[in-house]
Design a protein around this nucleic acid. Structure first.
Length: 471
RNA sequence: GCUCCCAUCGUCUAGCGGUUCAGGACGUGGCCCUCUCAAGGCCAAGACACGGGUUCGAUUCCCGUUGGGAGCACCA
């Protein structure tokens, strides 16, 4: 297939939604797969709702995900001349007509019709009145032949369409002269020479009308592919309140972009039994034939699994680069890369699902004093642990070099000295003493990362703490 | 209400009339490993919404029912 050109056309009226992001991903992947181009178009014709802030958020989210564009961003608002010209042409050829029905009149007639149990489409009152430009405030409607069928072969849903009589003569220009969405989309997709329109299934109904517009404009419509919507828990509509939907929020929560991409691409698309897709694989394997036709629920648990998977695979320097901001946030000061820190972070890969979680688990290395988790302290920092901590303190104080194997030897010595007790009796109190928590990577590696001075200081502090609690 | 769309384990899905007592993954439960937490290994439970057809044979095709979704603007 050659000459493939797709586009992602969001309106900058809020956050970058994961549903939109998936649409962008599909468009990008499809274009790459076929050696085509992918364009970005900002649909900002609704001046009241469009904001610069959400446009920036949109761009930031796409960039984070690594979804690339070969053209754009072009703003729909800048295509006004094109849109006006198209409307003028339709008016001239009598394929569109002026309509003076007011919003209120339309509303009243619609209510009547609906009350009678019928579906409302514009009743065509102004259709044959031949109003000229001087007819006062008016909208422009496309003249649809009620006898025709507006159909197309959807690349996901197969044969699709509706009778024109079910659609009615739809509005293409507001009374203030502004072109309406469907008109602008068709004119711009034509202008940008879009070959494949891949978008959410909520546009299925618009497609019928757009097909009519292409015909009225004597133009060949592009191929259409509608992807089923992502729904929330219980198959209900995604709600910003209940469901995590903001791409930027996922970023800030510390998920890896590759994990996010992998998660999104598998919602409503599959390739046999494969679950893990690299960026490159997505670009070579993605196809519309395997897109599902039913709405899919997004499972955050799967994202967590994927995120950990990618966390485990990430090259060291890349991991550190991504993690540093989270570490600094956790420490409350700029954190720099250090060998011991890197070694320790490696051990956290299989214990974390996000960068934020990794940073949290590294916190004890970054701060001066640790706070004991209440439950952990109550369970492990008990009087019985004090002699163990003291003995460990004494022996570790004389230890050199400070490395895991040497530390282990000390632990073994203390263990037999204390009557061959279980290693947990040593490791857990120490773990709480130095990290504040009852869970961490291996105790020897943990102490090695902390360093000798801080380790023995914290062990002493824990012993002290136990003593004061006994009083 | 009207129009259109969809329907396999809790979730994402494989399946494209018979080699399927339906396969994979996440999640869940158990066991192993073990200084904690994980990771890893092994095992287990778990689905073709329902009712009619078509067919020698339906998860796969058709029609209903039920359930869910989307659309019905001088928004995009």
């Amino acid at each position: 297939m050659s000459g493939v050109r797709t586009r992602f056309a969001p309106s900058p009226t809020g956050i970058l939604h994961m549903g939109s992001a998936r649409t962008a991903l599909f468009n990008w992947a499809f274009a790459r797969r076929h050696g085509g181009q992918h364009a970005l178009r900002i649909e900002d014709t609704d001046r009241e709702r469009s904001t610069e802030a959400s446009e920036r958020a949109l761009l930031a989210g796409l960039e984070w995900l690594g979804i690339e564009f070969d053209a754009g961003p072009i703003r729909q608002s800048e295509g006004r001349e094109r849109h006006d010209a198209a409307v003028a042409r339709l008016l001239e050829t009598d394929r569109a007509y002026r309509c003076v029905c007011t919003r209120e009149e339309l509303e009243a007639r619609r209510e009547q019709t609906v009350a009678a149990g019928e579906s409302w489409v514009y009743d065509g009152r102004c259709r044959d009145r031949n109003y000229e430009a001087d007819c006062g405030p008016h909208t422009v409607r496309l003249r649809l032949d009620p006898e025709t069928y507006l159909g197309w072969e959807d690349l996901v849903f197969g044969p699709s369409g509706q009778a024109a009589s079910e659609i009615g003569d739809m509005n293409i220009r507001r009374s203030d002269g502004h072109p309406l969405y469907n008109l602008a989309v068709v004119v711009d997709d034509l202008h940008m020479e879009i070959s494949h329109v891949i978008r959410g299934a909520d546009h299925l109904a618009n497609t019928c009308f757009q097909i009519a517009l292409y015909r009225a404009l004597d133009a060949e419509p592009p191929r259409f592919a509608h992807v089923p919507l992502i729904v929330g828990a219980g198959g209900k509509k995604l709600s910003k309140r209940r469901d995590p939907v903001s791409v930027l929020q996922f970023r800030d929560d510390g998920y890896l972009p590759d994990a996010m991409l992998n998660w999104l691409v598998r919602i409503g698309w599959s390739h046999g039994d494969q679950e893990i897709f690299s960026r490159e694989e997505i670009c070579t394997l993605f196809d519309l034939e395997s897109v599902s036709r039913s709405p899919a629920q997004a499972d955050p648990g799967k994202l967590e699994w994927l995120s950990q998977h990618y966390l485990k695979e990430l090259p060291r320097h890349q991991l550190m680069a991504l993690l540093l901001p989270f570490l600094s946030e956790e420490a409350g000061r700029p954190v720099e890369v250090a060998p011991e820190l890197e070694d320790f972070v490696d051990l956290l890969r299989e214990r974390s699902t996000t960068l934020a979680e990794m940073a949290r688990r590294t916190r004890f290395l970054l701060v001066d004093t640790v706070d004991y988790e209440e439950k952990a302290a109550r369970k492990f920092l008990r009087p019985a642990a004090q002699p163990i901590l003291d003995s460990l303190h004494e022996r570790l104080s004389g230890l050199a070099p400070w490395e895991p194997a040497a530390i282990e030897t000390i632990f073994e010595t203390v263990r037999s000295e204390q009557g061959d007790i279980g290693m947990g009796k040593l490791a857990q109190p120490v773990r709480v003493a130095v990290t504040g928590s009852s869970a961490s990577p291996g105790i020897y590696e943990t102490l090695a990362a902390l360093g000798k001075d801080r380790t023995i200081f914290r062990i002493a502090a824990a012993s002290e703490w136990i003593a004061t609690r006994q009083d």
